[in-house]
Design a protein around this nucleic acid. Structure first.
Lengths: 248, 248
DNA sequence: CGAGGGTTTGAAGTGCATCAAATAGTGTGG
DNA sequence: CCACACTATTTGATGCACTTCAAACCCTCG
């Protein structure tokens, strides 16, 4: 397996990908071209560490496909997962405001294709374009709200409720009829994403099944309506269902 | 007690306060004057609710003195405390990126003097001045890192460790000799700030005392060196002591 | 088929929450 | 200055949720 392969296609072609993420949605074509000017595509195998918390870094990334885990770890090796991201998510841009030091580590958890972009160019564009700065501010405010809710959840939701909330974020919450959910990655990884042990996850999922009407077959979960799931999961949440922005 | 008293002094005099907070430290005098143009000073008694999560809001605040609690609550009344702030802290500016809806509630926990400022003016200045936008981005990145660490702490630190970490944030971490710490507010409030019950706080503080060399007399805590406290509290933390920016 | 990782189940332990009650501390009016 | 009321804090007893350790099971893939 190749650890990293660069794509020879000219950078201008990569600008197209930038339009997929919220931060750059309103950029003008020439600005996108500048932002993408030194971009290149990278393929990474499962397990690859992109960078370590505390590292100096010059790049930020957009995920074209695959899954990436952001985490921090203590001296004794315990991991605290910051987030797990997939297609159309961006990461690493935070380093721009931390003296180019990344506040977390990043690891590929499913074989992934990434677009690597230079922080320097982003910095220049932000300094010159208040609209882009405002856009990034909005994105950061969103991160913050998401984190707020996560904190709230770990404090006041039970393990089964956190799982229910996690499941709700995997589907289109507007659908009213039957639904099918495919767990996007390992149950073990979901468990640590939710801050619990694999054993706890397994048992909590069983409890969730008993208390709602969902059915579980391996990594597939289905049910006849989201209502029961939502009322179970969201009863200990300050925001109401359906959750804005898929953050329960 | 008066619920709210406006100050008659012209707004230009208030610009001086803006220089105290990181966001505005580098602003030019005329920009500060514009930012402060509709500011006014408010005095609020303990218990006063400034605004409720979900409220439309037009103002942000700078605390001149006192203590303010930011929190969210669920349908059943459980509170999740977002932060507790004092002099030289700013709050409420997040609403700018959330359609002027505040994502949390704010309550005065100790009689406070606040400077109330209009969001609209801040919005205008940011849109016109990339340097100010960058400054706000830096502030927001700081919030994010702080939250990240808080999340990590609630997940992997024990109650006594969280208290130790909280204490370390109250002192100048560079001092090497004996130290004295005064708890800034109610133990009950500290407990909920740290996401635990008052009873748990009391017991955890006792356990912390047993495992380190600190001495406790009411709201005063002292010891001969921070080392032992730090090595106890920070062993389950991804950042190392002394903690950058007083965030252990 | 057999090896190995992911997942589940069982049993026991730990830490925090909860309920209840005692104690300390603070401010009040007499 | 004292007694009282009220709140903050501590202590005790008990319960529950999650963790930990151990082992079984299952599923995939060579």
């Amino acid at each position: 397996m190749n650890l990293h392969s660069a794509d020879p296609v000219p950078s201008a072609n990569h600008a197209h990908y930038l339009g997929m993420i919220p931060l750059f949605r309103r950029c003008k074509p020439e600005q996108m071209a500048r932002l993408a000017q030194h971009a290149h595509i990278e393929h990474h195998p499962k397990g690859k560490i992109l960078f370590i918390s505390g590292d100096q870094t010059d790049s930020y990334f957009i995920i074209l496909n695959g899954w990436v885990k952001l985490f921090r770890e203590t001296l004794d090796g315990t991991q605290a997962i910051v987030d797990i991201l997939t297609s159309r998510h961006m990461f690493g841009e935070t380093a721009l405001f931390e003296d180019k030091i990344s506040p977390f580590s990043a690891e590929i958890v499913e074989q992934s294709t990434l677009l690597r972009l230079p922080l320097q160019v982003l910095e220049n564009e932000i300094a010159a374009d208040p609209a882009l700065a405002l856009s990034l501010l909005k994105v950061m405010a969103g991160y913050r709200r998401q984190q707020d809710q996560e904190l709230e959840h770990t404090k006041i939701q039970s393990a089964p409720q956190r799982i229910g909330c996690f499941l709700l974020r995997l589907v289109d919450q507007r659908i009213t009829g039957p639904f099918v959910i495919h767990l996007p990655y390992d149950k073990t990884l979901i468990a640590s994403r939710l801050g619990m042990q694999p054993e706890t996850f397994s048992r909590a999922l069983t409890r969730l099944k008993d208390q709602t009407d969902i059915r579980i077959k391996g990594a597939t979960i289905e049910g006849d309506s989201l209502d029961q799931l939502a009322s179970f999961a969201c009863s200990a949440c300050s925001s109401s269902f359906p959750c804005k922005d898929k953050n329960c």
